[in-house]
Write a protein that binds this DNA or RNA. Sequence first.
RNA 1: GGCGUGGUAGCUCAGCUGGUUAGAGCGCAGGAUUCAUAAUCCUGAGGUCGAGAGUUCAAGUCUCUCCCACGCUACCA
Length: 707
Amino acid sequence: MNQPKRYLITSALTYANGPLHIGHLAGANLTADIFARTMRNLGKEVLYVGGSDEHGAAITIKALKEGLTPRQIIDKYHAQFEEAFRRIGISFDIYHRTSEPIHHQTSQDFFRTLYRKGEFIEKETEQFYDPKAKMFLADRYIKGTCPKCGYEAAYGDQCEKCGSDLSPTELINPVSTLTGEKPVLRKTKHWYFPLNKHEVWLRQWINEGILDGKKVHDPRTWKNHVIGQCNSWLNEGLQARAMTRDLDWGVDVPPEIPGAEGKKLYVWMDAPIGYISASKQWAIDHGKSWERFWKDEGTALIHFIGKDNIVFHAIIFPALLKAEGSFILPANVPANQFLNLEGDKISTSRNWAIWLNDYLESMPGKEDVLRFYLTRIMPEQRDSEFTWKGYQEANETELVNNLGNFINRVLVLVNKYYGGEVPDFDPNVQLTSSAGEDQISFQDAELLLVFDKLQEMVNAIRRFEFRAALRTLMEISSMGNQFLQFNAPWQAYKTQPELAAAVLNTGIQIVTALSVAMEPFMPFSSAKLREMLRLPAVAGRGELQDILDALAEGRLLLEPGHQIGPARHLFERIPDEVIEAQRAKLVKTAPAQAAEYPPLKPQIQYDDFARLDVRTGTIVKAEKMKKADKLLVLEVDLGFERRTIVSGIAQQFKPEEIIGRRVLVLVNLAPRKLRGVESNGMILMAEDGEGRLHFVSADTDDGWPVS
RNA sequence: GGCGUGGUAGCUCAGCUGGUUAGAGCGCAGGAUUCAUAAUCCUGAGGUCGAGAGUUCAAGUCUCUCCCACGCUACCA
């Protein structure tokens, strides 16, 4: 495949309802940053965009909870994100936000174009509207009397008593569960995007890289799990998706479209278009063209995301772009898997995470160590795990002992023997190669080995194999350590000064190469090293390409006579106490929501209660229901009879554990078929604050009533 | 239940279209060395490649069945 002329790189937008943690870095941001920096260092034209995703119901809810306005919430998180990303060195060309007018305009324009082209299906439905809450109600927020069995607390989508599927409009006396008000029917219109119409070309584009008969990318460069996930969706059949919602916090549906009042664009018409509006803003700020990046086939569009976002970026957004007609499609969607933490999933609600802000505050100057370790364990092909011990070890064995030590050895020796001046040398001096203790080499041959490694590293990054690229980088400094060890310039300096000069000149060339090559991974340490070398910091202007060219042509990277500064340590050990203190911060908390008691149900009369017939019983048989994850088929002995009862507790109880359990059974519940098995009754369970279920029972004989 | 991805030395992971004694780093054992943040270098021990069956002259690599982890999805509160 031809090398693209330029790259448009995106990091998944960050949702503005909670702080950043290391998972955000490992998934979509550090990956994209390393890629963007590398491409800039290779002299490519790069536009790297990111931003905050600031719309949606979750933000409204968060605002209500904290007693703030949605605007206050998003302002707070956006500022926080921007600052944290900057401090950890994510090199966005622009970090934008979806609340900006230019974004609203851009996504509305996008919607308009699709609307005019007839890409949407309009569906008008009558839905219940709660005048007090001023919102349309989802089916399950409505209760009323079941038209079939007369049960008074049937949900809008289903009657729990008789099991029939309902639609909210069938209910007699519907009531909003939010406010208790009587909802009114209102017509509401929504626009659906018929994804199913796009299935055929999507299949070919994803699996063969062919779009409109043209090869646009090589599917072999896409990750297995990305293609697999897409095909899984395609094989299940794509459905028309609503592109609008009855929400109050988001981008308005273009007002001139009939029926648009009160409607907002759904997230699929909003968040990914944020990439486009960010590009536009960047173009305005810099007097450049955004369309060069979005509409020219010489551009490779790369979406960096986590695996939860695959379908969104590889199917839905491409389909929208194609339907719009003027945009290129992504050349790759290198999704990462998930990062776990100390044996458990990262969870914002359980506070199981390493928060980026906290890290930046409590581990000052250690930005690159985090970047390094996260890259080293990056979940590229499968989930991986962050441990503080692993972090400490990686820092010590690789950064301090290998990379930092090699650089320090060279700089100290050059300072000590040559007053910090890069020594001149005789290119014909025989050296021992880093490739083996018995191999004779010369300086230029040695530098060609470095060239090969740099090439290898660049190729790995082009394949989005960041772990491999980082490993290759470390191999260069390993080679450097071997080279020093074999040639022992500290001895040669006394007996063969010409050897020492050739060795240390070579050493300083390798260090110079490293100062550039390490920049995408560890920009802060790179800058520090460049300062010691008295060289300008790497600024993303083709420095890596310059180095590759020079090495290929046999030119030196740092000329004899160049004066370097004193050696300072690039990395330092991190004491056990510091690691322990960090680990001690990790304390799982119960999710906040689960701690809240559910609201009390409306008052009932004794007669209502007396209608329930609850009896004691014993589980005598239990087995898993086939083709269902949550159901157990139980046989319960009630003394006077045995009954089959299906219970949705399979995720918390194993069948063999619960045989013999005394339980309370609601015995006069109408029978209902669950996945083909008739259930005659209901096992009563108590639920605790963390959602765990517990059996309730009594010490009486089976079959006697409970009241 | 369906689909997807993964399951390789104590740990973290490489192993492309099947081909000689399965690799690396860390850790471990022994040795060398002192320029360097007790760093570095050399050597070595360590694996029936999740389990079983099959295809093949030949399988970690292909096929089938099963088990485990994670994700999507269905069903289910």
